[in-house]
Structure formats: C-alpha cells, structure tokens
C-alpha cells in the first residue's frame, strides 16, 4: 500500500462523484493535504456524506509520512468513503475539521496525543485525552517500542525460565558433537 500512493487533485475527485464499488460499499480516495478539508466539506455539504465515521492516522515511518484517514458515510447511498491524506511525519500538522463535525475535535485531540499530529485551532487539542501525565513520545508512533517500554517500566516475574526446543535438544543430545560451524 505504501508504495502506490497516487494523489488526485480536488478537481479530479470532484468531477466523479465517488461511487463505491461492489457490495462492500467502501472506497478509498487520496487527496492532497491542502485540498482535503475543502474536499471533505464538499462531500458533506453537496454529496451527502454527512456522517464522520472516524478519523485516524496510519504511521508509515519508512516513508516518513502519516496517512490520515477520514472515513465518511453517505446514508442515502449507504456508502463509506475513506479520504486519505498523506502528511509528512516531521512537524506533522493538518487543518482541523472540528467546524464540520464537533466530535472531530476529540479525534484530533487523540491524534495529537497518540501520533503528535497538530491541528491548530481545534478545541482542546493540546489537552491530554487518555494519557494524563505522559511525557514520552506519542505512543502510537511506530518508533515507540511497547516491549522495550514494558521491560523498562515493569518487572518480570521472578523464576521464569524457558528453553528453545532445538537448542535444548542440541544441549541434551549432541552437546559436543562436531557439527556445523
């Protein structure tokens, strides 16, 4: 997915009313970051995508981008449309859509906290949402290593030892045998 990233201009997507294919009733469309909010506004006000289902991000750390995904739904045509916007990871910022849907502010607050994506002007975007008192890097970023974090933060239960099957059998059955080197 990460490699085939085509961006369409707002004109291109505007001209073709996004019709979702198949029974799934689901389609994804990529737009440029500067045109996304205008496009989503049009989707909401003109094309009947009145329901913001969710708004989240995917971290493509290897490409240094966040892929924002706005999922909107059209109740009349019963279709879901995922509007995807790639923004650079470095200094990630995006226009807010809280004026379109008030609850978008909550999503944006979470994205700020979990991914470090800023939405200037979004109400309460800098307030902590879930992680009160968190000082580390935004934990949903892929460079945050949960295993390392838990090893540094918690103590393993004492007395736990395990054995790798193949290594243990070597130790028991052919410990000094001269085999592969």
């Amino acid at each position: 997915m990460a490699t085939e990233r085509q961006e369409r201009t707002i004109q291109e997507v505007k001209d073709s009313d996004p019709v979702c294919d198949g029974q799934a009733g689901l389609k994804f469309v990529h737009v440029g970051a500067d045109q996304a909010v205008a496009y989503i506004t049009r989707l909401r006000d003109v094309q009947g995508y009145t329901h913001l289902v969710f708004f989240t991000a995917i971290d493509y750390i290897e490409d240094s981008i966040f892929r924002l995904t706005y999922m909107v739904h059209n109740y009349a045509s019963r279709q879901d449309l995922g509007v995807q916007v790639d923004i650079p990871r470095q200094g990630a910022t995006m226009e807010s859509i809280h004026h379109l849907w008030p609850h978008a502010a909550t999503y944006q607050r979470e994205l700020k906290e979990m991914f470090g994506i800023d939405f200037p002007g979004s109400p309460g975007v800098d307030d902590s949402f879930i992680l009160e008192g968190w000082t580390g890097i935004p934990p949903m970023r892929r460079e945050f290593d949960t295993k390392l974090y838990s090893e540094q933060t918690y103590f393993p239960r004492p007395g736990r030892v395990t054995h790798d099957t193949a290594a243990y059998m070597k130790e028991k059955l052919y410990p000094s045998e001269a085999e592969t080197w």
Binding site: R160, V161, H163, Y168, M169, L173
Partner: peptide, 15 residues
C-alpha cells in the same frame, strides 16, 4: 515456559 520434565529423546525434547 518450556521446562525440562522428561528425558530428551529423538522426537521428544523432554520439555
């Protein structure tokens, strides 16, 4: 955890 219980044989690690 896999822990030693039985004797290790071919086809049975004993863990």
């Amino acid at each position: 955890d896999m822990v030693p219980v039985r004797e290790t044989r071919h086809g049975d690690s004993g863990l």
